[in-house]
Amino acid sequence: MSRRNALLRIGAGSLAVIAVSAAVLVAAGPIGKSGPVLAQPDVVEIHSAHGSSFVPALEGKRPLFILALGSDARPGQNIERERADSIHLIGVDLQHNRATILGFPRDSWVPIPGHGTTKINTAMVLGGPNLMVQTVESITGIRIDFWLLTSFGGLIRMVDGIGGVIVNVPRAMHDRFSGANFKKGRRDFNGSAALAFARDRHDVPGGDLGRSANQGRLLLAALSKLSTVFGRDPGSLLKWISVGYRNIRTDLSVPTLLQLGLTATRIPVDHVNNLVVPATTGTVGSASVVFISAGARAIFADLRADGYAS
């Protein structure tokens, strides 16, 4: 029994030695480390910092043209076969990251291919977005690449879907028809407020022309917000595209819309000109109409050249 006890004592002793050694090792840190165990940094130096960014945008020498349309279809109506009360030709100068929003008053008295001369917004009733494209192309001499069409409800849902937009309201608006009731200045708009702002033509200077300019302001507000949120979170662009795509009709594919969205993020808001086709009001028979001025030709030519009209 004495030998057994000796073995037990040896075993226990070994365990104790190992346990103590382990404890010392744990406390002391890595084997072979010389000098004090702990060290503190006393000099911090930015050794290197490199940043880069590449957002693939549409490229090309030729400018890009998109026709953005708003239908006045009511619920249950086919939005492609009702009048287009918001008509904007967007030109993008891909080489210089700048753009132009050119609004057409809905009552513009223009020739519609195959249908004589009538109000421009009738073109969509007669032939849908494609005839709208043909009509604007024939007026301006500009080849349009894509079209986008939304409705009242679509606009509300889009603006709400992106969390609203901040619009610079140029003057106070109080219009019971559209529901616009805004003070002058920067206003945070939800979808309904944005729609009211875009529809009001009764108490804005120039009526239909002033309304068209306000619709351009709404587009600028959206572009401004896109730039901000994309800078913070590039993934937000995909949300914008999904919200947009669900609330528009378009001949764009999702990948192309993504490319357009990426292109838009590269265009500073102050590089976008918001214009309305110069025009005068008048009547044809009993109808109030807008006659596009001769001076518009210069704008069309300027826009056609590089997508930017100054």
Partner: peptide, 19 residues
């Protein structure tokens, strides 16, 4: 594409501390 890509390397000199 890469909307942002940044790598920063900071170095700190190690000196013995008092404890």
């Amino acid at each position: 594409g890469y909307p942002s890509a940044n790598t920063a390397i900071e170095t700190q000199a190690l000196t013995p501390s008092a404890g």
